[in-house]
């Protein structure tokens, strides 16, 4: 079943095509990697899906419904969550609060419940908290215990990336968009996170689209790889297919001398 389908997506910034004619789809339960050289439009692609940028042309369907022109918050509540390339947490909120606040679109209580401390409100608060703890627990000992009450800015770089994934998980998405999840991590942390991404699918049932530069990670987890260059998809397929595609090699390394 098609979870997300994108047709002829075009995004233009001041005359420059950031993306043009992008067709893309992902089925439930897949892990797809999007790769491409810097400036290929990968993050713009994510921004378009999550509603931060509205496309100039084209259409996007999530579970058969168009999501073009929706507010980012609506997109998230439909079931698409994302992380950011340059980790953007709520730095002065505690780790627990970061994850709790992300459940906003899955919870209901407003003024009335909070002011009169209704049973429904207390119940919901408890559930939010338990769920947050459960999600944080997924990352092992790193984000739980005394750390839950620490501000997010006190975390190490790798832990911030983990917390960002936890926050995205807390919105209870079907589709998870991970923007360079292992960037800046050392090899051990990378390996660990790679395993975790696999578990995100097997244990939590997320479908994942991932932008990544680390080819080892791409190779290890993805079912399918999409290569973007200058806003145009130049290849699609399994890792092996893509990595042997001459266009892809050219996009990354340039044209071989004799062919010029």
């Amino acid at each position: 079943m098609r979870l997300l389908e994108i047709k002829d997506l075009q995004i233009t910034f001041g005359g420059l095509d950031a993306l043009s004619g992008l067709n893309f789809h992902i089925d439930k339960g897949e892990i797809v990697s999007v790769i491409g050289p810097n400036g290929a439009g990968k993050t713009t692609f994510f921004n378009a899906i999550s509603g931060l940028v509205t496309p100039t042309d084209g259409d996007m369907f999530f579970e058969g419904e168009s999501i073009v022109g929706l507010d980012p918050s609506t997109v998230t509540s439909l079931g698409i969550a994302r992380t950011f390339q340059n980790v953007r947490l709520f730095p002065n909120m505690t780790i627990l609060e970061n994850v709790m606040v992300a459940q906003h679109c899955r919870t209901r209580q407003l003024l009335y419940g909070a002011l009169f401390q209704t049973r429904a409100f207390k119940q919901e608060e408890r559930e939010i908290r338990e769920r947050a703890e459960e999600i944080l627990g997924f990352f092992g000992h790193r984000l739980v215990g005394y750390r839950m009450d620490q501000p997010a800015f006190a975390l190490s770089y790798a832990n911030r990336r983990r917390l960002e994934i936890a926050r995205a998980m807390a919105t209870q998405p079907q589709l998870l968009l991970l923007d360079e999840p292992v960037a800046g991590m050392n090899p051990i942390e990378t390996a660990e996170l790679t395993a975790l991404i696999g578990r995100l699918r097997s244990e939590w049932g997320f479908t994942i689209v991932m932008i990544e530069h680390d080819m080892k990670v791409v190779k290890d987890v993805s079912d399918r790889v999409v290569v973007l260059d200058h806003g145009v998809p130049i290849a699609q397929g399994s890792y092996d297919e893509v990595s042997n595609n001459p266009d892809v090699v050219e996009a990354y390394l340039g044209r071989p001398v004799e062919a010029r």
Binding site: T12, F13, G14, G15, T54, T56, V68, G69
Partner: peptide
Amino acid sequence: MSAHTISTNPVK
């Protein structure tokens, strides 16, 4: 398509 800034989407 002419040059447009980010927020010019007719179907917003």
